[in-house]
Design a protein around this nucleic acid. Structure first.
Length: 610
DNA sequence: ATCGCAGACTCAGAAATGTAGCG
DNA sequence: CCGCTACATTTCTGAGTCTGCGA
C-alpha cells in the first residue's frame, strides 16, 4: 500500500513511512500558500508608474534619497603561516603589495595568468604598489611563488562551502541586512530597488578576448572618489567614518545615485536602479515603442536605401549598404574605438576589408558575402549571406585598391548614419533595427510554430524555438557548459530507461486485459486494468516531456537565449502569446523577469500586436 | 560650425550563488 | 531523510551605443 504524490509520479516505491510524507506534504502546501500570499501583497504594493503622467522632458525624478554605495571590507594582512616566496626565500610583503599579490594568487588556476600581456601588465602595476625595498628585490615575476597564497584562498572557498546550515543562515541574514539598508532608495515617494549598490572591489582587470589592458590593477575605490547624487531635500548619505565624498550633487536630469571614475580605462561607473524600477522600465517601454514606429515605416526606409545604393555620392552608397547589413543581419552600429586601448572588435560601420570575403558563386548561390569578424565581447560573427547584385557590386567597389586592414566603409561612421536615420524618423538609430527585427521575428515565429492544440511541453518548445531564432539573428552565443555532453548523455539514458519502462507497462496492461477476458466480470481485475492503463499513460507523458527537453537542450547548445529575452523582445508579445495559448506566464518568465516586465504584464491583452 | 570626447545609459557573457530533484 | 549534483537564477562588471557639450 502506498500513496502516490501527483507531482512526482515517478516515485512509486513506498520507501518512507506514510506519516513523514504526509507531514512534509502539508508543509509544502503551507509554504506554497505563503508564497502566493506574499506575491499578492507585493503585487498590491507595486508602483503602477505606467498609469501616471510622464515628467517633462529631461527630468528623471523630483525626489531621490539613498544611503550611498556599500564599500567592500578593508584588506587584512595574511596569517603569519602563509608565505610568499621570492627566489625560494620567504618575503614578508607590506600591506599594499601583499593585497595585489593575493589578487594574482587567487587567479592562478585561470588561463589569464599564463598570458604574457596579463602577466606583464600585472607585474608593472604590482611594482607600483611595492615599497622601494620590495621593488628593488622583486624584479622577475617568474621568481615569484604564490602557491601558499593560492592554497589558502582555495581552502577559504572550500571552508565556506562546508559551513553548517545555521552558519550559512547567519551569513544570509547579515547579507539581507545590508541589502535592506543599502539596496533600496526612495524615488518620488516609492521604494525602489537599486541595481548595483556595492562598490566594485579592487582586483585585476579582466577584459574580454585579447585585451591590451588585461592584468592591470583595478584600484580600490575610496569615498573620496565617489560622487553622490540625490535630492537637495533628502537625507544626504553619510560617508564611512573618517572619510568624505568627492562631491554631493543634486542633478535630477540623470538617473544615477553615485558615480566614480575607474582607473584602468578611465571610464565612469554608476550606481543605478534595478531593471524593475520605474526609471528603467519607462525607458524600456519607450525603446519598444520606437521600434514599433519603425515597423510602420520600415518599408519606405527599405525602398529608400535600395535606391541609395545607386546614388552618385559614395557616402550615400556606403550608408545604404551599411544600412542593408544592419537591417538584414542585425549587425551593431560599430563605433570607432581607440586603437590599442581595447580588444580589436568591430561592428557594421567599422568593418574592415579583411572581415568579408566575396564569392560570385558559393554553394549554389550567387553573390555571397562571407563575414568573419569579432563583435562585441569578442564573440565571433561568422555568416555566409547571399546579397543582391547591386550590393555585391558595390562591395567590390568599396574594396578596390584597399589593404585588408583598411575600413570597408571609409566614408561612413555611426554619427553620419544615425543623423540620416533620425531624419527619417525621430528617435531612429542603428540599434533600433536590432530591437525591431528581433521583436518582429519573435512574433512571426510564434505565429508559425505554435498551435493551440499542442500540449504544454510542445508550446514551450515552440516558444523557445522562436526565442532561439532571435538569438541566432542577434548572434547571442555562449560556450557550451563543460558538462554539456555528459548531461546530454544522462538525459538520453533516462529516456532509454523510461522507454523500457513504457514497454514493460504496456505488456503488463495487455496481460491484465487478457486476464479480464478470461475471468469476465471480475471487478478487481478490471480495476487492475484501469491502473495499468494509467501507468502507461503517465509513462508516455513523461517520455514525451523528456524528449522535448532533450531536443530543446541540444538546439540550445551554443545559443544564449537570455540576452534577447531581456533586451530585445518586446515583452508584450510574450504576454499576449501566453494569454492566447493559455500558458502560465511563469513558464516563460521567472520572478525577476516578471518584475522587470511588470508594465507589460499589466497592460497587455491577448490582442496585442507588435 | 564641427568635431572629438566625456558622460550616461543599454547590452553582454562569465562566474557565483541558490535551489530542486534525485538516488 | 539528506547530501549531492545539475540546473536555474542572480550578480558582476566589461563592452557597446548614442548624445550633448565645450574647445
Amino acid at each position: 500500500m502506498f500513496q502516490c504524490n501527483p507531482h512526482k509520479p515517478k516515485k512509486e516505491e513506498a520507501e518512507h513511512p506514510v506519516t513523514t510524507k504526509k507531514k512534509s506534504k502539508e508543509e509544502i502546501e503551507a509554504a506554497k500558500a505563503l508564497k502566493i500570499k506574499k506575491r499578492e501583497e507585493e503585487e498590491q504594493q507595486r508602483w503602477r508608474w505606467w498609469e501616471e503622467d510622464k515628467y517633462e522632458d529631461g527630468i528623471k525624478w523630483k525626489f531621490l534619497e539613498h544611503r550611498g554605495p556599500f564599500f567592500p571590507p578593508e584588506y587584512q594582512h595574511l596569517p603569519d603561516n602563509v608565505n610568499f616566496y621570492y627566489n625560494g626565500k620567504v618575503v614578508k610583503l607590506g600591506l599594499a603589495a601583499e593585497e595585489v599579490a593575493l589578487f594574482f594568487a587567487q587567479m592562478l588556476d585561470h588561463e589569464y595568468t599564463t598570458k604574457d600581456v596579463f602577466r606583464n601588465n600585472f607585474f608593472k602595476d604590482w611594482r607600483k604598489e611595492m615599497t622601494l625595498e620590495e621593488r628593488v628585490l622583486i624584479s622577475d615575476l617568474n621568481k615569484c611563488d604564490f602557491r601558499e597564497l593560492h592554497t589558502m584562498h582555495k581552502e577559504k572557498v572550500e571552508a565556506r562551502k562546508v559551513l553548517s546550515k545555521e552558519e550559512k543562515l547567519v551569513m544570509k541574514e547579515a547579507n539581507q541586512k545590508i541589502v535592506e539598508e543599502y539596496g533600496f532608495c526612495i524615488l518620488d515617494h516609492h521604494r525602489e530597488r537599486i541595481g548595483n549598490f556595492k562598490i566594485e572591489p579592487p582586483g585585476l582587470f579582466r577584459g574580454r578576448g585579447e585585451h591590451p589592458k588585461q592584468g592591470m590593477l583595478k584600484k580600490r575605490i575610496q569615498p573620496e572618489d565617489v560622487i553622490i547624487n540625490c535630492a537637495k531635500k533628502s537625507c544626504i548619505p553619510e560617508p564611512p567614518a573618517g572619510h568624505h565624498w568627492k562631491e554631493v550633487r543634486h542633478d535630477n536630469t540623470v538617473t544615477w545615485l553615485a558615480s566614480w571614475t575607474e582607473n584602468v580605462q578611465g571610464s565612469c561607473k554608476y550606481v543605478m536602479l534595478n531593471p524593475s524600477s520605474k526609471l528603467k522600465g519607462e525607458k524600456d517601454w519607450e525603446k519598444y515603442e520606437v521600434a514599433r514606429r519603425l515597423k510602420s515605416c520600415v518599408n519606405g526606409i527599405r525602398q529608400q536605401y535600395q535606391q541609395d545604393i545607386k546614388s552618385k555620392q559614395m557616402e550615400t552608397r556606403q550608408r545604404a549598404v551599411a544600412l542593408y547589413f544592419i537591417d538584414k543581419l542585425a549587425l551593431r552600429a560599430g563605433n570607432e574605438k581607440e586603437e590599442g586601448e581595447t580588444a580589436d572588435t568591430v561592428g557594421c560601420c567599422s568593418l574592415r576589408v579583411e572581415h568579408i570575403t566575396l564569392h560570385d558563386l558559393l554553394e549554389d548561390k550567387d553573390c555571397v558575402v562571407e563575414f568573419d569578424f569579432l563583435g562585441k565581447d569578442c564573440i565571433r560573427y561568422y555568416n555566409k549571406v547571399p546579397v543582391t547584385k547591386r550590393v555585391f557590386k558595390n562591395l567590390k567597389l568599396f574594396m578596390k585598391n584597399k589593404e585588408p586592414g583598411d575600413d570597408l566603409f571609409d566614408r561612413l561612421n555611426t554619427c553620419l548614419l544615425n543623423k540620416h536615420l533620425s531624419s527619417l524618423l525621430p528617435g531612429l538609430t542603428a540599434k533600433v533595427f536590432r530591437t525591431f527585427n528581433a521583436s518582429i521575428t519573435l512574433q512571426e515565429q510564434l505565429q508559425q510554430l505554435s498551435n493551440m492544440t499542442d500540449n504544454p511541453a510542445e508550446k514551450l518548445l515552440s516558444y523557445n524555438r522562436a526565442n532561439r531564432a532571435v538569438a541566432v539573428l542577434c548572434n547571442h552565443q555562449r560556450v557550451p557548459p563543460k558538462t554539456f555532453d555528459q548531461s546530454m548523455a544522462n538525459l538520453q539514458s533516462k529516456i532509454d530507461g523510461r522507454r523500457e519502462q513504457l514497454a514493460l507497462a504496456k505488456s503488463e496492461l495487455k496481460l491484465a486485459k487478457k486476464e479480464v477476458k478470461a475471468h469476465s466480470s471480475d471487478g478487481k481485475l478490471q480495476a487492475v486494468v484501469e491502473r495499468k492503463k494509467k501507468a502507461v499513460q503517465r509513462c508516455e507523458e513523461q517520455l514525451m516531456k523528456m524528449e522535448v527537453q532533450a531536443t530543446n537542450r541540444e538546439e540550445n547548445k551554443q545559443i544564449a537565449l537570455g540576452t534577447s529575452k531581456l533586451n530585445y523582445l518586446d515583452p508584450r508579445i510574450s504576454v499576449a502569446w501566453c494569454k492566447n495559448m493559455e500558458v502560465p506566464l511563469d513558464k516563460i518568465y521567472n520572478k525577476s523577469q516578471r518584475d522587470k516586465f511588470a508594465w507589460a504584464v499589466d497592460m497587455t491583452g491577448a490582442d496585442f500586436i507588435f
